[in-house]
């Protein structure tokens, strides 16, 4: 059907694809050539100590009203229980690959077994790991593999409890890109969803999760 449309518009013989490519080639006849080298004089590495980077990451997340809990790795389950229970969050979705040791007893853990969007829309929250953190911008990056799950898991529930290791936190965006797997999907989130569309007043929580807690594991 689509191909038929193209044939109608272009007449037989030349597809839109060929036409556009031909126009580009013609327009670029003077300009095209050896690729221009990109001057990468911007900051590509870290300028701070690991402690400073982690502290900056924590500060940036807090600027976005996320809560950050610095903990040891053997405290994950206990702190998760404390946080979830004090927030009265019971029904928590977990992606495949989230270590069972992270899940405290006494909560209704819901494994993501191709859960429908209606189910996801009704749970109390989601708990995941992360691929890395970027300190300067306070970003958490997911690549949606084990312990991170499908993209929708961290979208529909209104609450996200994210576990990230201090060693996963880099200072700058170029360091983050050097570590990312370009073949996998990527989601950056930098604070809860927000809008400033009405009189430039920043309002938190439009469509994504409105509440983010981060367990920052320091060993």
């Amino acid at each position: 059907m689509v191909a038929a449309t193209e044939a109608i518009v272009n007449g037989p013989g030349m597809s839109s694809r060929e036409r556009v490519l031909e126009r580009i080639a013609k327009a670029n006849s003077k300009a095209a050539g050896v690729p221009e080298s990109i001057p990468r004089g911007y900051d590509c590495g870290s300028t701070q100590s690991t402690d400073e980077t982690v502290a900056l990451f924590e500060r940036r997340l807090q600027d976005y009203d996320a809560r950050v809990f610095r903990i040891r790795s053997n405290e994950i389950a206990a702190r998760a229980a404390e946080i979830l229970q004090s927030g009265h969050r019971q029904r928590i979705v977990v992606p495949d690959g989230l270590p069972t040791a992270w899940r405290p007893a006494g909560l209704a853990w819901i494994p993501d077994d191709e859960l429908s969007i209606d189910v996801l829309n009704a749970v109390d929250g989601v708990m995941t790991g992360a691929t890395l953190g970027v300190a300067v911008s306070g970003s958490i990056v997911l690549q949606h593999g084990p312990a991170e799950g499908r993209r929708v898991l961290t979208l529909l529930p209104d609450y996200h409890l994210c576990v990230i290791q201090a060693a996963q936190v880099v200072e700058t965006l170029p360091e983050a890109f050097a570590r990312l797997d370009s073949a996998r999907p990527v989601t950056f989130f930098s604070g809860p969803s927000a809008t400033a569309d009405i009189e430039m007043t920043r309002i938190k929580g439009v469509h994504g999760p409105r509440f983010l807690d981060v367990l920052l594991v320091e060993d």
């Binding site: 970027v134 911008s137 306070g138 999907p185 990527v186 989601t187 950056f188 989130f189 930098s190 927000a194």
Partner: peptide, 11 residues
């Protein structure tokens, strides 16, 4: 903003 709340990249 230093970073907007969400960026999605996929193929």
């Amino acid at each position: 903003e230093r970073m907007n709340p969400y960026n999605s990249i996929w193929s």
